[in-house]
Lab assay of single mutants.
Amino acid sequence: MAAGGDHGSPDSYRSPLASRYASPEMCFVFSDRYKFRTWRQLWLWLAEAEQTLGLPITDEQIQEMKSNLENIDFKMAAEEEKRLRHDVMAHVHTFGHCCPKAAGIIHLGATSCYVGDNTDLIILRNALDLLLPKLARVISRLADFAKERASLPTLGFTHFQPAQLTTVGKRCCLWIQDLCMDLQNLKRVRDDLRFRGVKGTTGTQASFLQLFEGDDHKVEQLDKMVTEKAGFKRAFIITGQTYTRKVDIEVLSVLASLGASVHKICTDIRLLANLKEMEEPFEKQQIGSSAMPYKRNPMRSERCCSLARHLMTLVMDPLQTASVQWFERTLDDSANRRICLAEAFLTADTILNTLQNISEGLVVYPKVIERRIRQELPFMATENIIMAMVKAGGSRQDCHEKIRVLSQQAASVVKQEGGDNDLIERIQVDAYFSPIHSQLDHLLDPSSFTGRASQQVQRFLEEEVYPLLKPYESVMKVKAELCL
């Protein structure tokens, strides 16, 4: 049975990233139509530049190519590739079939990587351009969430054990800070992308030097003109047959890092959902379990974690691919890159769409948070109580021993009897502590235990987050809708 299948058929496997999760716009960027249309555009740009620099290419040939950029006979191309065992030459023939007058000058002087690699770089750039505003929107939604809850005390956790208090907004800023680093890295790697350009079979530009009869300047002009037509500021000066596969490492490393950030955020949300302090959106008709109707599973956060793990592992592909590119190139890269580049971007696209949807509907339960604080705060307040007693004339050592005994009794009630923490009640009825009984409410005010959390939130948002989001103001209103 021949390899390949009808990918629109229910009898043929289709990647869930495309069929179930990723956005239509990201799927289109990695589609065959987008790819092969870009090949034709690159052939047109090459012909236009070659004509401008004096090669015998007519206006009629150029116009014929322009008129057929979208006229792609995919069936013919597939048949040609089956016959020739070469995808680029299959599309040269297919393009030439609908451009008979231009057929002889299509791909003039070029090698397969002229269309293959340059198209990949265009796709990487455009895919990054799709991700950047999506990530900015996630940051914006979380920034709104953090600002609104900047002063809401909550129990902090280290080692997932109760620690000092923080605020809900401050905790959210930990998430935002990681995503801001990801946004900066995505922008950097996007701006650092260079075009492969017009380089020939081993990167020496020998074929173009021959076409222009040894004119170095025209060869350099050709490279520059096509690079500018493709919208790049610069091209690699040095290439082998391909652009260095280190570029793929750079791009997928940034995406993998984004995956790590999203995994951490969504894990926190899942843990908070278990504590009943916070939940992701839950639709009115949504079913959490087929057997347990009360369940409210954090399905979206779980999906993000599941896909983020996949995204983090994909960076190993370009690392290994770059390491086995012998001399000017081997074909070890080809099949692998067809999979890992598309999957990385479709996965990143999915987790950003999902995280935006989550961040637009996060639900906080202040009463649950308050109750958990009441359970733990008495123990945390013991040092403040000791200091207040010393100020009232008591002995630190005597007070410490009193607190120690009462704390152990209260802990026994919590752990052995399943009761509430009654340390404060014990202190309130103990005559030894009568000098500070009137101060206990103040000493137990949760806001006095959150330090500068709310001020940190305000400063972080104003100095770091809002300036970073400013270039994306025009796209901030787009909502994230999930079908599944």
Rank of each mutant, 00 (worst) to 15 (best):
A2H: 05
A2G: 10
G4T: 13
D6P: 12
H7K: 12
G8L: 10
S9H: 14
S9A: 12
Y13C: 15
Y13V: 13
S15G: 05
R20A: 14
A22Q: 09
P24E: 14
P24I: 13
M26S: 07
M26W: 08
C27P: 02
S31R: 04
D32N: 07
D32W: 07
D32E: 10
R33N: 06
R33M: 10
K35A: 08
R37F: 13
R37Q: 13
W39D: 04
Q41C: 10
L44R: 04
L44W: 10
L44H: 08
W45Y: 14
W45F: 09
A47Q: 02
E48H: 07
E48C: 11
E48Q: 07
A49V: 09
E50A: 02
Q51V: 05
L55V: 08
T58F: 07
E60T: 06
E60I: 08
I62D: 01
I62K: 08
Q63C: 09
Q63R: 10
M65D: 00
S67Y: 07
N68K: 10
N68R: 08
L69Q: 00
N71C: 04
D73P: 11
D73W: 07
K75R: 05
K75A: 06
A77Q: 13
A77I: 08
E79D: 04
E80L: 10
E81S: 00
R83N: 07
R85M: 12
V88C: 15
M89Q: 13
M89A: 01
V92F: 08
F95R: 04
C98K: 12
C98D: 10
A102N: 06
A102W: 10
I106L: 06
I106Q: 10
H107V: 03
G109C: 13
G109E: 04
G109M: 03
A110H: 08
Y114H: 00
D117C: 02
T119P: 05
D120P: 02
D120M: 09
R125K: 05
A127K: 10
L128P: 08
L128D: 06
L130N: 15
L130C: 12
L131W: 12
L131K: 08
L131M: 08
L135D: 00
A136K: 11
L142W: 06
A143E: 06
A143K: 04
A146D: 00
R149F: 06
T154N: 02
T154I: 03
L155A: 04
G156Y: 08
H159A: 01
P162L: 03
A163I: 11
A163T: 01
Q164P: 08
Q164R: 08
Q164D: 01
T167W: 12
V168L: 12
G169I: 04
R171G: 10
C172M: 09
C173E: 03
D178W: 03
C180E: 14
M181F: 10
D182L: 05
Q184T: 06
N185L: 09
R188G: 10
R188S: 01
V189M: 11
D191L: 11
D192P: 01
R194S: 05
G197A: 05
G197Y: 01
T202G: 05
G203V: 07
T204D: 03
A206E: 01
S207M: 02
S207G: 06
F208L: 10
Q210T: 09
D216V: 04
D216A: 08
H217Y: 15
K218E: 01
K218T: 08
E220P: 04
L222C: 09
M225S: 09
M225P: 04
M225T: 00
T227S: 05
E228G: 03
A230E: 05
A230F: 14
G231H: 13
G231A: 13
G231V: 07
A235P: 08
F236H: 02
I237V: 09
Q241Y: 13
T242L: 12
T242Q: 01
T244R: 10
T244V: 02
R245A: 09
K246I: 07
K246L: 09
L252S: 13
V254P: 00
A256M: 14
A256D: 01
L258G: 06
L258P: 12
S261Y: 12
H263L: 00
I265W: 08
I269H: 00
R270L: 10
L271K: 02
L275F: 14
K276G: 04
E280R: 08
I287W: 08
G288S: 13
S289G: 03
S289K: 15
A291L: 07
A291D: 05
A291Y: 11
P293V: 06
Y294G: 12
K295G: 15
N297T: 13
N297V: 00
P298Y: 02
E302T: 03
E302G: 13
L307Y: 02
A308S: 12
H310V: 08
H310L: 12
L311I: 11
T313M: 11
T313P: 03
T313G: 06
L314H: 06
V315S: 06
P318T: 12
L319N: 10
A322E: 07
W326V: 05
F327M: 09
T330N: 01
T330C: 09
L331W: 00
D333R: 00
R338F: 07
I339H: 12
I339M: 10
I339C: 06
C340E: 02
F345N: 13
A348V: 08
I351N: 00
I351F: 09
I351L: 11
N353W: 05
N353A: 09
T354F: 12
T354S: 11
T354C: 04
T354G: 13
T354Y: 04
Q356P: 07
S359E: 09
S359V: 02
S359I: 12
G361Q: 09
V364A: 08
K367F: 15
V368D: 08
I369P: 12
E370L: 07
E370N: 01
I373G: 12
I373T: 13
E376R: 12
F379I: 12
T382L: 08
T382M: 15
E383A: 11
N384K: 10
I385Y: 15
A388V: 08
K391D: 10
G393L: 03
G393R: 10
G394I: 10
S395E: 04
Q397K: 06
C399Q: 05
C399S: 09
K402H: 11
K402W: 00
V405E: 00
L406G: 10
S407D: 09
Q408E: 07
S412H: 14
V413L: 07
V414N: 15
D422Q: 12
L423Y: 14
I424G: 09
Q428T: 10
S434F: 12
I436K: 03
H437A: 09
Q439D: 13
Q439T: 03
L443G: 14
D445V: 09
F449N: 02
T450G: 08
R452N: 06
A453K: 07
S454Q: 10
S454A: 08
Q455G: 11
V457H: 12
F460A: 00
F460D: 14
E463T: 11
P471C: 04
P471E: 00
K477P: 07
K477T: 14
L484T: 13
L484C: 01
